[in-house]
Write a protein that binds this DNA or RNA. Sequence first.
DNA 1: CCAGCATACTGGACGGTGTACAGTTCGTCC
DNA 2: GGACGAACTGTACACCGTCCAGTATGCTGG
Lengths: 185, 185
Amino acid sequence: MPRTPGQRAGLTHDAVLTAARTVFAQRGLPGLSMRSVAGELGVAPNALYSHVADKTALVDALLDDRLGALTPPPPDADPVGGLRDVMLATFDLLAAHPDLVPLYLARQGARGPNARSLGAAMTVLLARAGVDSDAAGRVVRALIVSTLGYAALATADEANLAPPQLRADLEVTLGWLLRGAIPRT
Amino acid sequence: MPRTPGQRAGLTHDAVLTAARTVFAQRGLPGLSMRSVAGELGVAPNALYSHVADKTALVDALLDDRLGALTPPPPDADPVGGLRDVMLATFDLLAAHPDLVPLYLARQGARGPNARSLGAAMTVLLARAGVDSDAAGRVVRALIVSTLGYAALATADEANLAPPQLRADLEVTLGWLLRGAIPRT
DNA sequence: CCAGCATACTGGACGGTGTACAGTTCGTCC
DNA sequence: GGACGAACTGTACACCGTCCAGTATGCTGG
């Protein structure tokens, strides 16, 4: 999107984020550079630094942005089923956009607002299942770790493992974790 | 280790690997470049390419090399305890060398000979616990995913989670997984 | 013993990266 | 209307992985 020179670009943090999203969608992770994002905006690479601290800050924002596509489980859902479904949905999101996975791994899962709200919704479900809030954090971590890990396996290049197979394996694993974490009723 | 010019360096794949190990130990992941490894050997950067296909191949070798520090569980060990101990030892190894973790994550856990032999030893234990070899692969994956994931959390920069705490959490998680995977006796 | 050859290695370069510094141009507010 | 601060550009630095063309070395067959 080149501009006629002499005019202002009028960038904002959101505009940069949007451009990053576009570049990332079209050219994947290796194509995501400050220069490519700036090019998408018709702007010099350094111009981005007025709106974004770092490349890592931009990537963080991008990650949480993508997490917004996930709908948190409703508070009145069945705890075990609800938790399993969010994690499987997360797996599906990551499997559909393989280039996201290395980014999440490098950041250990993003701590933006969307990530937080998902975590909160999961904690609510766990509370209803009798898990106190101290333990809930640990359980959420265990679930996320497995989900991210299986997503990583599913998006590996050398993948001799088929994603549907891994999705099934993840489901089994989540069952073990939830059965262990939630006191028998 | 500069040489007097005009003489051969006499590099080998092993020499390159050793140099890489040294550089990595001293300068960490960001300091590990083809140029720095070559510098350690007193050699031009391109010289490495006579002994190593890629930087990624070098890193792969380095990863499996470090995995050699782990001793596989003996075949006659208690299955649950033995499996738990290998994974905790793996966690400790990674926690002690934080820069290893991003590399393992990027490669989804290394497929070199050392990694294979560890996997084989784990499969043996699982077989003795009544898990057939098909399911064993899945269980091993589940265990590794959690272990790597917790190690990643333990080595995160922003870590508000203390490593000993995470180690304890991992132990609990491994218990859940093993209890789920191994049929009740 | 010497010719020939494959291999190891060097020098230099290409195209890329993230980002710092200095300067210019613009919108906005007193 | 003049000053100020922010936005943006041009340029540059210090890296990166890797390729290409050349040179020198050690080993091998005659």
